[in-house]
Design a binder for these strands. Structure first.
Length: 258
DNA sequence: ATGCCTATTATTAATAGA
């Protein structure tokens, strides 16, 4: 079973890219972020014609997340992350797919800092940690996949010095991510490739992709019940080179049958 | 220290992304 996460940066602007990638990569589950479309303007018919059932949490203008299931439907969908009942930002969706609980998240960027956006990012990390602990308590097979907007270590950024003042690389953000992982999760990419430079994002600016000036900020965290079934991980780096691509790269794992 | 590029919203300029 192949589970992927992909920040599409506008699902309507990116629809040809998304459909081509689904056709070529054939993920069984695709967690999408930054749909940039309200609930009623997600291109559901095109997604279904490509062979995918879907559940999504849209928002006008920004954010928006979706879970796509090849030849099936997401079950028991929830779209909220507890802790901030009035939160209007669509950044989380969770569903069950063939016995695996899939959380799809788009963590706030947090720039500029200090300021309310950075404070919101820290609160969101707390809320995610709370949900993650609940899921661990349930003991099942879980993957938390998405755009975390966190650079975990120096190995995950082409030039650490350039990012020290950025919200993605702040010590408290990195520590919060580390605490989350250490509470019982496996960072799938690092489980199989502990020392390799693997990037999932390349800025549109400054020919970042051409220079391989990337970041690893899209992550898949696996619960203890799921981690032993991990058989492969990868990034579809070539997708970033397609014309009109997202600035993110699809990132995926292969899970063996239970 | 900031712009660079790209998408959305709403009307040609602002906001957000990372």
């Amino acid at each position: 079973m192949k589970i992927a996460t992909y920040n599409v940066n506008g699902i309507n602007a990116r629809l040809p890219i998304l459909l081509r990638w689904l056709d070529e990569a054939k993920p069984d589950v695709a967690c999408l972020q930054e749909l940039k479309a309200p609930q009623e303007k997600i291109p559901e018919a095109a997604v279904r014609a490509a062979g995918y059932g879907a559940a999504w949490h849209g928002q006008k203008g920004w954010n928006g997340v979706a879970i796509l299931v090849r030849g099936g439907e997401p079950e028991d969908v929830r779209r909220d992350l507890s802790g901030e009942p009035d939160d209007a930002q669509s950044r989380y969706i969770e569903a069950t797919v063939r016995g695996i609980r899939v959380g799809c998240l788009y963590l706030p960027n947090g720039n500029p800092l200090p300021g309310p956006k950075f404070d919101y990012k820290l609160r969101w990390l707390d809320r995610l940690a709370t949900r993650a602990a609940e899921l661990l308590d349930e003991g099942g097979a879980v993957v938390l996949a998405g755009d975390y907007n966190v650079i975990p270590t120096d190995l995950d950024v082409y030039n650490p010095a350039r990012w020290v003042n950025d919200a993605l690389f702040q010590p408290e953000v990195r520590e919060a991510f580390r605490r989350l992982v250490d509470s019982g999760w496996a960072d799938a990419v690092r489980s199989l490739h502990p020392t390799e430079r693997i990037y999932t994002f390349y800025d549109y600016f400054r020919n970042a992709f051409g220079r391989n000036a990337g970041l690893r900020i899209d992550h898949l965290l696996l619960s203890p019940a799921l981690a032993p079934r991990l058989s492969a991980v990868g990034v579809d780096r070539d997708v970033r080179g397609w014309e009109k691509s997202s600035d993110h790269v699809p990132t995926w794992i292969e899970i063996a049958d239970a």
